[in-house]
Design a protein around this nucleic acid. Structure first.
Lengths: 188, 188
DNA sequence: TCGTTCTATGCAACTGGTTGCACAGCAAGC
DNA sequence: GCTTGCTGTGCAACCAGTTGCATAGAACGA
């Protein structure tokens, strides 16, 4: 259950409410682990019950109160334990690849729009990551000597950048292949 | 539920039993969608009940009988419908990245073994994919002009190859970063 | 002959994640 | 004044996927 661990890491980097966590999962943490707010609230409650997290009610002006979570001692221990456990190298789960192979039994050209749409999404993500990298790590406003935490965040971000770059290049390959098949023989 | 669709594609490419499907999910289809035999049997049964698949009992010599599944008309229609639906571009779910960010709050050097292990697994997968590519698509024994289905299988395999290559390169980057941090200051 | 491996199928319990819905206060624009 | 959108929290139902276990015949080597 890596969501728990992702939450621990995120709260160690910066304590926050469920809502704030949900927003982080749309951004940085979400680059490599996604979660909806419903799930986050549920897991936070369980983790609090298990003593992994501390909560603090924070009244706010001009907005609803929030519960700010932070990592308690046992939470830190749980994370440390997990870090020392081996995990399975994970495999892809790529619907689009299933579709592409399935297109052999349908009209390959019909996939063009879909593939182009994915291409746009991944290009946008790539641009977004590159902007973030410039802002936080390589640009003039970035902290001059990065500390260990920042170095590690950067190497993870470089992974996201590499992934998106690779995906965009592959989708170019897919598009070229689909065009080639469309030109050769429209359908089976 | 892409497992259903992955099964349809696989059975269209070649009818087979649950057991054979499970083996394919360890190989080619498994490059981009994984499933255990328990799940496959359960889904096959449901799909048969829904009329998407036909079954045929095949007695075998020297081994237990098997049920050979093939795609029925409605199954083909279901696949075609799905191919025309847009799907969400998916995001990574990468435990290792969570661990790497978490290492900032523990001993980064302790991750070295784990990262090296993942590096080996991905290198092996890459080698395996490249062997398969040579055998089925680019080598002298490959069919000379590929048909549409083979072209599409090949472009998907190229995606797997690109993914593994990218991952191996990134893990090199991660290793270098961890070494650098270990040399600079052992722990926080 | 005995343990192991391979083919072949399956159930049951659990857990993690998704989807749909609800409530509430406040701000901003039409 | 009304709708829209943002912050903030949550429940309930469902579904997909994992884990552990069970069975059974045949082959194969120690």
């Amino acid at each position: 259950m890596a969501l728990e661990h992702a939450i621990l890491v995120s709260l160690l980097e910066q304590p926050g409410s469920g809502y704030e966590l949900a927003r982080r999962f749309e951004r940085s943490i979400g680059y490599f682990w996604t979660a909806t707010h419903q799930q986050i609230y549920r897991v936070l409650k369980r983790m609090e019950g298990d003593g992994l997290l501390d909560v603090r009610d924070v009244p706010q002006e001009r907005r609803p109160d929030k519960k700010e979570y932070s990592v308690a001692g046992p939470g830190r221990a749980a994370l440390s334990g997990w870090l020392h456990e081996p995990i399975e190298p994970e495999s892809l789960r790529h619907d689009l690849a299933v579709k592409i192979r399935g297109a052999a039994f349908d009209d390959p050209a019909a996939l063009l729009d879909e593939v182009e749409r994915h291409h746009r999404v991944h290009s946008d993500r790539l641009a977004h990551y590159l902007t973030g990298e410039l802002r936080d790590f390589t640009g003039p406003d970035a902290p001059a000597p990065l500390d260990a935490g920042q170095e590690l965040q950067h190497v993870v971000l470089r992974g996201g950048i590499a992934y998106e770059r690779m995906t965009v290049a592959w989708l170019d390959d897919v598009l070229a292949t689909l065009h080639r098949l469309g030109a050769a023989g429209p359908r089976r």
